[in-house]
Design a protein around this nucleic acid. Structure first.
Lengths: 347, 347
DNA sequence: TTGAAAGCGCTAACAG
DNA sequence: CTGTTAGCGCTTTCAA
């Protein structure tokens, strides 16, 4: 207010004061200001207090871009995910952000809409933005993108999957293995005519692993799926796909995730089929809504929050300790609810 | 591979080559490189091609932090939202990111968990990160945060609300007005004992406006709510709150949003109450799942995607044209579904 | 403990 | 059209 500004129309000066202003005001060098900003012990209490006062008076805000340029670290993480529109990704990213923030890192987020080309483009942008670490989903990506990632040396964690053979660190769970207890449960409950409603398989290793895992486990029981269909991830589309699938008369429909299962539930209802009496329906994810459906949905719980949290923690630890990111294998858990209760009259 | 590096253990050199390398390789100045990078017309085709070749050969990536420092623009937007865990916010942010990206801006995201203090802190961080524009939710924030926002000159849009008196630009809808058609519909269907299950009101102008709007419109019809309760945003908590509310015997429960309404639906089912015969239940948002519930949920549709898209577009336009952000008023729409069908025997 | 000075990688006048 | 020259705001040796 009382300052004389040489040029009052300077446009994008957001923070207002710069470090030089603070230094001048406090009667010290910018180096000292920088030191107190970064909590260096090499500052006398006197200087520190003068600087802190100046910072307060000037409402000084450090300029992160300049800091990044000087330190070659951005204290920023990135996340490239298929969509925020699926609750399970939203939950994972939410936890990832929370943990990253808690550890002093901001988060860049980008949505690929399940498009591999777009994903590659977004990853590249993340590198340009100088993120210190990157969260990706799954292991399905082209060689070019992969190579860029490796050659850039950017620390990176692929979540929602766990594969020993993955080219990058995985922080997630084994999608194929997750299906085994579910299939066992279904078979033990007397279900024999199992249909599978998978998510889009192209470019999606998680969806493929879940399908493969289900088929493989059925085979262990001497069974084969009575029908297999693929659907987009939306309740409406899944409902349509399930309608056709139900016509072959399965006594169980194993869905690729809860959203798809919700659609299948709606389709069964529309077809006048009783769940679980006529047909069992199961999902994967365990969304909050799944437990409150009528009937409540049997599903496989995915540790989305823990995954997000652990990924952020591991990424940041790897950065700090200057070491590669380690893979972390998380577990899933079968949650049996009414939508798959024992078929009346089953063995 | 064939290059001789003086120091092969240089740690955080991500992009690898710098602009100087490109310039040298192409036999031009860095200024020229910069020009082709930014699509300046002041470059000969010959130079442009040489530079482009050099960029390709060196796999050069521009360093955004340096660019931001030099241009005083980050081509970055920020979003501070309560949570990603609510599908309606996730949808809005998803669209916001998409549009921002389409217009060349990356997105910083931060989650406040509905904590106003945390929100202020996060806004400050966004300013430090140098975002060019900021997306906020609602108008409920402390004077300090507001002042910082205004004094920083940062361009900012508050979504999910539209209030003529708002201190910052609003890109959203009138939460109170949105409830009127819903109340009218309920009353016209013969409902008289209306209960309200609101979201948390403290620090949430949208929740308060919805409650106030409902009460006001009921008053226009000469009615008063038979009960009013507040609940956290989760199906489970809403279910508990609804259980108590249903005991007073309302013939309609107006919920603050769809998530709460889903909980109320579950509570009614658990209490053996028929929906809509015994009690009507309504929400706000129109989540995809709401149409597929049994019964399908009557709700007020919020234009979350359009809001996100328009907010990004307006923010970026305001930045480009160097003008303040304009408010945009969007509409909502009553969606009548079975959960509120005419009460049997109503007038 | 402190300050001076040299950049970090890029853009933006300003001459030529 | 193109190169030269200053920085953008901050950190970081290196001396003092």
């Amino acid at each position: 207010m009382t300052e004389i500004k040489p040029d009052s129309s300077e446009p994008p000066r957001l923070g207002g004061a710069t470090q030089i202003d603070v230094a001048r005001r406090a009667g010290v060098s910018t180096a000292t200001v920088s030191r107190v900003l970064n909590g260096s012990p090499l500052v006398s209490r006197a200087s520190r207090e003068k600087v802190e006062a100046a910072i307060r008076e000037l409402a000084y805000m450090p300029h992160e871009a300049a800091r990044s340029l000087a330190t070659r670290r951005s204290r920023t993480l990135g996340a490239v995910i298929p969509t925020l529109t699926n609750a399970i990704f939203a939950a994972g990213v939410n936890a990832f952000e929370d943990e990253a923030r808690r550890r002093g890192h901001a988060l860049f987020i980008a949505v690929s809409n399940y498009d591999p080309v777009q994903e590659g483009f977004l990853i590249r942008q993340m590198v340009e933005r100088g993120v210190d670490g990157l969260l990706l989903v799954g292991n399905d990506r082209g060689a070019e993108g992969l190579e860029m990632l490796v050659s850039s040396g950017l620390r990176c964690a692929c979540a929602w999957a766990y594969d020993e053979a993955a080219p990058l660190a995985n922080i997630g769970f084994d999608n194929a293995a997750a299906m085994a207890p579910l299939v066992d449960h279904l078979v033990a409950s007397g279900r024999r005519r199992v249909a599978i409603l998978a998510g889009v398989l192209a470019g999606n290793d998680r969806a493929r692993a879940r399908l493969d895992g289900t088929v493989a486990r059925l085979a262990d029981h001497g069974l084969a799926p009575v029908a297999v269909a693929e659907t987009l991830y939306s309740i409406r589309r899944a409902k349509e796909a399930a309608r056709a699938l139900l016509e072959v008369g399965p006594d169980a429909v194993v869905c690729g995730n809860d959203v798809i299962a919700l659609g299948a539930l709606a389709a069964a209802r529309a077809a006048g089929l009783g769940v679980p009496d006529d047909v069992a329906i199961t999902g994967v994810d365990d969304l909050p809504i799944s437990a409150e459906m009528d009937p409540p949905l049997t599903t496989v719980r995915i540790p989305a929050e823990e995954m997000g949290r652990r990924a952020a923690a591991e990424l940041i630890a790897a950065i700090k300790e200057d070491r590669p990111v380690s893979s972390i294998r998380l577990g899933t858990r079968l949650v049996v609810r009414r939508s798959s209760w024992r078929k009346p009259g089953a063995s």
